[in-house]
Write a protein that binds this DNA or RNA. Sequence first.
DNA 1: ATGTGC
Length: 477
Amino acid sequence: MINGLKRTGDLEWEVPIGFIEGMRVPGRFFLSENLTATLEEGAVTQLANVATMPGIIRHSLAMPDIHWGYGFPIGGVAAFDYDTGVISPGGVGFDINCGVRLLTTPLTINDITKKKEILDQLYDAVPVGVGARSSLRLSPKQLDEMMIHGSTWAVEEGFGTKEDVAHCEEGGSMKGADPSHVSQKARSRGVPQSGTLGAGNHFLEIQVASEICDPEAAKVFGVEAGQICIMVHCGSRGLGHQVCTDHLQILERAVDKYHISLPDRQLACAPLTSPEGRAYFGGMAASANYAWANRQVITHQIRNVLAKCCGIGYDDIKLVYDVAHNVAKIEEHVVDGKLTKVCVHRKGATRAFGPGCPDVPHDYSKIGQPVIIPGSMGSSSYLLKGTDEAMMRTFGSTCHGAGRILSRSQAKKTIKGSQVRESLGREGIMVKAPHDGAIAEEAPGAYKSSSEVVSVVDRLGISRLVVRFEPLGVIKG
DNA sequence: ATGTGC
């Protein structure tokens, strides 16, 4: 283990104040023995760097899928006091509201006799790849509405049902979205990319619910053993990326203006209550809503394909839930025994609100929020539930996925996409992608084990396992 | 992640 770290529990490590100069709070991260070898020194330094930022509360946190990112580590969670703290695009990531949703179908594995045909049709219906464009032709006014109202806009435009909206984090529509802080350049990227999947680790997968770990919660979430489910992982595409780029530039100047001292330029930030901080929040929330609407439009295309190919009704496909993995939110948490307004940055981390918390849908209120953790290509994905433990220890947060161990370029150098395709094929997993390079970058060997990551958060109790899913067919961007 | 990068 890296020098200077303190083990504080079975699965818990501390980065003590003094690890680097200027830390206001300790860092804390969660890892099992099996995962310690994957820990990068750079990611620990980033965790310590975040601990120097103004207004940070309690700890700079990282989940077991921690890895090196832009400024903040991926897998990072940091809460800042609303009145004295800052907001930082590095704490959210370039893909604002990169997130994932889980759909159930009335089908079982025996009903999937024409898997290739279904995948081909899904591939035709959902544009994938870098720079993918859709056939939607949004007017400037429609794009504004999409950014202000998110999923609600998409459903009003005919891309889903009212029940879908209720089963999204934030109702699929974050308050405070302000399209006036989304540049023309971002808008012009967003229009043709609405309703597209994107590239990298984004995917659309046909899965089967292979293990029910918590029958009561699974029943409430509407998932049964052997059921065919669909998982969609994508974000805000070029629009969110451009919003991040634009505001980083503004916030780099704000750092000097507000006399904020930072160990890394990539932590560019501004006070939450400053005009620059508010502007980023407004643009970020608009991008988050764009992403929720984007996943809703894709859901509509999926429903149409499955209705046609499998003879089921559009309404037979239910949305279990939709979570954000990259976003900053204004929330209230108990700090030193007092309910405190904070801005929680989750970057490659999932909200995991426990039973009875605000924003957990009515029908799930007794169980807690569904938490959706996608696996890397060809590996298991998971449905978990949020817990009281998460509310107390991690500002209601848990992990988001496997976490990379090989960079994209390293993966492409050492792994052949065609071989990955063949070996997955032997396991009965069909892969469709624009080119083999996309498969190599996302090969299972480029990632930590998602099951190990999920087992750590389950053992810690900051979320609890409900269902495990195995992939049958996957579309990669 | 991204109309991909020193």
